[in-house]
């Protein structure tokens, strides 16, 4: 159980702001990449890396560490921002995003960057990976926890439901999944393209503990994570109601910003709004 108080909440909120700044800056520098879904996940990722998870940048392969699998791998910038802020690599490296030879690949590559737990980018595969890690924790009787973050469009992949079934079947209470429920994918609204709704009911039917929160309210994210630690005998999903592009008015709720990087002008305007 982690402590929730004014101080811890304030610290994580500050980190989320740093992540958003870094996301915007590195994407503008790269000239391509996924803005909307990186911004919508920033508060969740900040809570995980700066409050919830036991990880040590000086010992990234510690076998008892908690693990985070970014199943929606296109949101790599939010992960890289968190790893840099946590001290896994110098912040300078953020500028190399998507460049030839950079460890910061367009989608996370665990063989190139310490701290990246899984090579993801092909949607749906990360959650199975997380289930595998949670299974290993049970086999080894270790008490590390495994976290994964999925997109709501990603829920359209059949294999995620195979993974959810397996996680409940094996009673993986060491696994917590987040769904970044921002209601958008590339071709438009998830309910118009291919509705996965009602998401919460489906998870319940699959045997998961379901918690629904405001995914931009740090205190709510913390409470949900603490509750997930207490749930025994089944995995927990935290359905985070979010806004794609959160924090930058002209990016919010706009599918166009899914895979578009800010230009120089956009960047200045966007950074000014984050203040």
């Amino acid at each position: 159980m982690r402590e929730i108080n004014l101080e811890t909440v304030r610290i994580v909120e500050g980190k989320a702001k740093v992540l958003r700044e870094d996301i915007l800056k590195m994407l503008a520098e790269a000239g391509s990449g996924h803005t909307g879904g990186s911004l919508s996940s920033a508060d969740i990722v900040a809570c995980l890396y700066f409050w919830e998870m036991s990880i040590d940048p000086n010992n990234p392969h510690d076998e008892n560490r908690d693990r985070f699998v970014l199943s929606k791998g296109h949101a790599a910038p939010v992960l890289y921002a968190a790893l840099a802020e946590k001290g896994f690599f110098p912040r300078e490296k953020l500028k190399t995003l998507r460049r030839l030879g950079s460890p910061l690949q367009g989608h996370p590559d665990m063989r190139k960057l310490p701290g990246v737990e899984a090579s993801t980018g092909s949607l749906g595969q990360g959650i199975s990976w997380a289930v595998g890690m949670a299974l290993a924790g049970k086999i080894d009787k270790k008490d590390y926890r495994v976290y994964s973050l999925l997109g709501d469009g990603e829920l359209q992949e059949g294999m995620v439901w195979e993974a959810f079934m397996a996680a409940a079947h094996y009673k993986l209470d060491n696994l917590t999944a987040f769904v970044d429920h921002n209601r958008l994918q590339i071709d438009g609204k998830i309910t118009e393209v291919m509705s996965p709704e009602p998401v919460a009911d489906k998870f319940r039917a699959f045997g998961w503990e379901v918690i629904i929160i405001d995914g931009h309210n740090v205190e709510e994210i913390m409470r949900a994570l603490n509750k997930a630690r207490e749930i025994k005998g089944r995995p927990t999903v935290i359905i985070a109601e979010t806004v794609k592009g959160k924090g930058v008015s002209f990016m919010e709720n706009r599918a166009e910003w899914h895979g578009t990087a800010p230009k120089k002008d956009d960047l200045e305007k966007a950074l000014a709004e984050l203040l």
């Binding site: 790269a30 367009g106 989608h107 993801t120 980018g121 092909s122």
Partner: peptide, 8 residues
């Protein structure tokens, strides 16, 4: 494909 990287 370019910048998206090896997974794509």
């Amino acid at each position: 494909v370019g910048e998206d990287g090896g997974s794509h």
